[in-house]
Write a protein that binds this DNA or RNA. Structure first.
Lengths: 241, 241
DNA sequence: TTCATACTTCGATCGTAACCGAAGCATCTC
DNA sequence: GAGATGCTTCGGTTACGATCGAAGTATGAA
């Protein structure tokens, strides 16, 4: 026995509620201080400090000192991907948090998933891009078509610049609320940044939910139309796999 | 706070060493009894029984009574995929088990990854199929070409039958030992079964490693040749993503 | 220098869960 | 039926780790 990688170690890192809260908070994509994370986790600063040290030792987190602050982020996007995967799995088993809370609807509508758009709007965006022939679905993989590259260029996305990154351009990410795929990867990130830059949407303070302005919402829906009202189109990478 | 799915619950399920051992043992794909799993985990039967109950309550495991035995398996292939993902992540962080042990080389050469071939041989097989134009790589997705379907048909794989399954035909799975992709999905499963059926290889008793007969090894290597000795070809879905 | 803020380290407490021995239940064999 | 095997339940012990108060360190501001 004792074969293979030590999954127990990283399991136990994620398995503590306080640490899980910290990681979930950092899935929001911004760097947060120890104090902020302590509040997010619902523990005192000392306790959070101990948790943060463990998470860093386990290389799930990276920290950056800035003056007397210590900003923590997820170590890299692989951590984000791992957490996405676990969240998707947990949601598929119905392991949701017990109290849905008032923020739940906003989260389901639009939220940040590490660095890209998720929730109802994220799913809609991918569906629309697929319908428009901008992205082709191939098994589990997504690919930007020439047509899509041109289309996104007209919105202001520099695709060739993104290609030079080591991250893949398109990735599908399973949405825990919608249980369907949305667009991740550097393109997913670029699109969300684009919305922020244009002032269509902004982050909310203490939540992963994303707030769209009325104008931004109108524009977003116009830019990513759907053929049928909400007829659950193609890429269902979730149920079957 | 308290947003989203409860990742702490499944983290803590995986986070206990005994349970992690049980899950790892079940990644071997066969159904195992409580007694066997207790031995694999290195705990007594009573303790294992408690762990198994928890894992089943968390819907990671399924059990099937057969006479006075209770056979446990992973609940479905989503669990396998989840564990694969965590293993790949853990390996990428260097969180390997401390004592490499004597079985390690065999594991690295060829092992079963839930239901398909992994390790050096698994990576070679995919590389070879890609080189031969049987499988095309597209971002993170893999796709079987018409040529590949024909080729595999000649080996005795009924591709059209596999297509009817709800599982995707091709999936790439990150190898924790090689840190490169190998072939998963229903096709990966079918290929491994094919090797077993032909008597090229067989499972080993208490390990996930796969033993190739000399004849089987020869045939396997001939069937999946590589251009350059081991020049680390295309699909590196691991580092960048 | 002095004070405040941000965070870490130390030390002690406490709760939970992993663990095993023993007993109990179920199923098969003879 | 009697006995063996496979597994679960119960009860008690133990150990680990999460927690926080208090004290210590580092950085910035006044």
């Amino acid at each position: 026995m004792k074969e293979g990688p030590d999954i127990a170690q990283i399991g136990s890192l994620i398995g503590d509620p306080a640490r899980a809260n910290i990681l979930t908070a950092l899935m929001g994509g911004r760097a947060l201080t120890a104090t902020e994370l302590a509040a997010a986790a619902g523990v005192t600063l000392q306790t959070a400090s101990a948790h943060l040290a463990k998470l860093e030792a386990g290389s799930l987190l990276a920290q950056r000192k800035q003056g007397r602050h210590r900003y923590f982020t997820l170590a890299d996007d692989r951590v984000g991907k791992l957490l996405e995967g676990i969240m998707g799995f947990a949601a598929s088993r119905g392991h949701l948090r017990h109290r849905p809370g008032p923020k739940e609807p906003a989260l389901r509508k639009a939220r940040i998933c590490y660095d890209h758009l998720a929730g109802d709007y994220g799913v809609r965006m991918l569906d629309s891009l697929v319908e428009a022939g901008a992205i082709s679905v191939m098994g589990e993989g997504l690919n930007l078509t020439a047509r899509g590259e041109k289309h996104l260029g007209s919105i202001g996305i520099d695709v060739s610049g993104l290609r030079s990154s080591r991250r893949p351009l398109c990735r599908s990410c399973l949405d825990w609320s919608e249980r369907r795929a949305h667009l991740a990867g550097s393109l997913g990130k670029a699109l969300l940044s684009n919305f922020f830059d244009k002032g269509w949407a902004r982050r909310t303070e203490n939540s992963r939910s994303i707030f769209f302005t009325p104008e931004g919402e109108r524009r977003f829906l116009a830019l990513f139309p759907l053929e049928i009202g909400d007829g659950k189109p193609k890429p269902e990478l979730d149920e079957k796999h």
